[in-house]
Amino acid sequence: MPLSVFDRLAVLRIEYPMVFKNKNPYTKRVSHCGVLEFSAEEGFVLLPDWMMKNLNLEEGQLVTLENTTLPKGTYMKIQPHSTNHNFNILEAKPSSAISVVETDCEVEFAVPLDYKETEKSKVESGKSQEETKFKPFMGVGRRLDGQPSTAPAEPSTASAESMVKEDGVKDVKEKNLKKDEQKFQPFTGKKYRLAE
Rank of each mutant, 00 (worst) to 15 (best):
N176Q: 11
K127F: 11
L9T: 06
Q185A: 14
K122G: 01
F44T: 11
V140K: 11
F6L: 13
A195H: 14
T188Q: 04
E119L: 08
Q147M: 12
T103N: 05
K190Y: 13
P71C: 11
T118V: 02
Q79L: 02
K175M: 12
D7Q: 15
Q129H: 09
V107C: 06
V123Q: 14
S4P: 09
N56G: 08
A10N: 14
D104R: 13
T68H: 04
K173G: 09
L70A: 05
E166M: 03
E58R: 09
E106N: 09
L62N: 10
K93L: 11
E58D: 10
F44M: 13
D167I: 14
S82Q: 15
R8E: 10
H85W: 11
K179I: 04
E91F: 07
E41V: 00
E124C: 12
K120D: 06
R143Q: 06
M138Q: 09
E66L: 08
T68F: 04
P112S: 00
V19I: 07
L47Q: 00
K179S: 02
K23G: 02
G43L: 02
L3S: 13
E119V: 08
L36F: 03
F44K: 14
N54S: 07
W50E: 15
V30E: 08
G34C: 01
V30W: 02
K127I: 01
E15K: 05
L65N: 10
K93Q: 05
G126I: 01
S125Q: 09
K21Q: 01
V45G: 00
E15T: 03
S156G: 15
N88W: 09
K122L: 11
N22P: 09
F44S: 11
V107M: 04
V30F: 01
Y115A: 00
H32W: 07
E196G: 09
H81D: 10
T157K: 03
S4M: 06
T69Y: 12
A151E: 08
S149G: 13
S39A: 15
K53S: 12
A40S: 12
D180M: 08
L12T: 11
K53Y: 01
E15R: 09
T83E: 10
T69P: 06
S128T: 13
T103M: 05
A92H: 08
G146R: 05
G146H: 01
A97P: 06
M52T: 08
E131P: 04
L177N: 03
F109W: 01
T132F: 04
P2N: 03
A92I: 09
G141W: 15
E102D: 09
F109P: 00
V35F: 03
H85L: 13
V164R: 12
S128M: 07
L62E: 15
A153F: 10
K127P: 05
G146M: 00
L47T: 02
S31C: 08
L46E: 15
